[in-house]
Amino acid sequence: MCLAVPGELVSINEHHDPLWRTGDVSFGGVLRQVSLACVPEAQLGDQLLVHVGMALAVLEP
């Protein structure tokens, strides 16, 4: 259940309310829309730790 998968942030869908900010994350080429509500610092190219559609951490390189 607490399984979290790392993936690369490849695009950001900006929104004025951080609650609705999302991005596309590539998991080995498979894209999935992910909430960026908890990682306001995330930038394109970052590796994100994603759990149930939500990024929980920007992984250290």
Binding site: C2, S35, A37
Partner: peptide
């Protein structure tokens, strides 16, 4: 909605979005 503190933020975000 099951899960530990890892999962609770996603449910919380759903709740906030649902009310909004």
């Amino acid at each position: 909605a099951v899960g530990f503190e890892t999962t609770a933020p996603a449910t919380a975000l759903l709740a906030r979005r649902a009310l909004l």
